Simulated scan of single mutants.
Amino acid sequence: MSNKLSAEEIPILLRDYRLTFEPAIDATYSISAKNLLDAEQALVYLQTIAPFFQSPSLLVTASLFGKRYSVLTMASAFYAMSRYDKGLQVAIENIWVEAEGHAKPWLPNVRFIDHMVSEPTTDRNAWRDEVLKGIFADNLAKAWQSLTKISKIPKTILWENTAIYVNWLYETKIREGANEQEINRLQEDYDYIVNQAPGALFGEKKNPLKKYCGPKVKIKESKHPIRLRKTCCFYYHTSDETNDYCISCPKIKRLV
């Protein structure tokens, strides 16, 4: 069964989840996502956006762009899946990264070519698998493979970048305003994504998120428990300060 987002459902995705229906006025910083799979076009694009990150290398640019791209791919799709029971068409061939050059911080939007959505019938679990396959195996896995080939960034970093936003979206963002029934569905979807979903849905042999979604721990640098990263995203390379690591960075020497 296919349908469209309703007039009541669209505004929140436009406002809070990086969705847009309009191409950027200046297409310099936009790209059809499928072109990320072409090494030459992807390289040119990474070089074009590197100044937004003050990035010193292709590897750093790939990591920081990967963070934004994972959010674009997942945010509106997860919200639609878990709050609306609707599946956006997130395969890499169906989306554009739309961005303007003047925005600070640089936060691109996602534009869909085909706006039709799927809905569960009798088996929501099977439907959910198809939605997740579109997000991960048919999009992010392909993008990460290409970025790894171009920049030599380990896929483990890209998948941990992804996991961080899966955690944030399901534990915080898309819970905003949810009722009890929606919270239960959100939790069920989250548990499945990070613990039970098979590797095939991610285009991998094993679920690549599971090892990055464990329990939070208390550290002296934070008032609240956090998850410590297992890989470094290289954000510190964009800072003017020496060793300006993220609070969860594995490069920080911590007392045991």
Rank of each mutant, 00 (worst) to 15 (best):
A7F: 04
L158Q: 07
V90G: 08
I31H: 11
Y236C: 00
E8L: 15
L59K: 07
R175G: 08
S57K: 02
F21R: 10
T61V: 04
P250Y: 06
I25M: 15
Y170Q: 05
P11L: 14
P11Q: 12
S146M: 11
V166D: 05
E171P: 03
G199S: 10
Y45F: 15
I113T: 06
T172E: 12
F78E: 03
N243K: 02
H115F: 03
I25L: 15
T148N: 08
P154Y: 09
D189W: 09
I95E: 04
V60F: 03
E188T: 14
E160R: 07
G199D: 05
T148G: 11
V117F: 09
K216N: 04
A77H: 10
K152G: 02
R124Y: 09
K211G: 04
A200K: 13
D85N: 15
V131R: 10
V60H: 02
I31G: 11
T162K: 11
S222F: 01
T238E: 00
I226Y: 02
A197G: 10
K67N: 04
I193V: 14
S151L: 07
I92V: 15
E160F: 05
I49Q: 08
Y29S: 13
I183V: 15
A163E: 05
T121A: 12
I95A: 13
D26W: 06
R68F: 05
K86H: 09
T238K: 01
G203A: 06
L158I: 07
N207L: 07
S239M: 00
L88D: 08
V97P: 02
P120H: 13
E40N: 11
V71W: 13
V131M: 13
L36F: 13
C246D: 00
S146N: 07
Q47N: 13
L72Q: 06
A103Y: 03
D129Q: 12
C213D: 01
S63D: 04
Q89W: 01
N207C: 12
T20Y: 06
F52Y: 12
G66C: 05
E221K: 05
H115V: 03
H102K: 14
N167V: 10
S63A: 15
K230V: 01
V97Q: 12
W96P: 03
I219A: 09
L36G: 11
A103K: 13
E93K: 14
Y236T: 00
E180D: 14
K34N: 13
R68C: 11
A80T: 04
N35D: 14
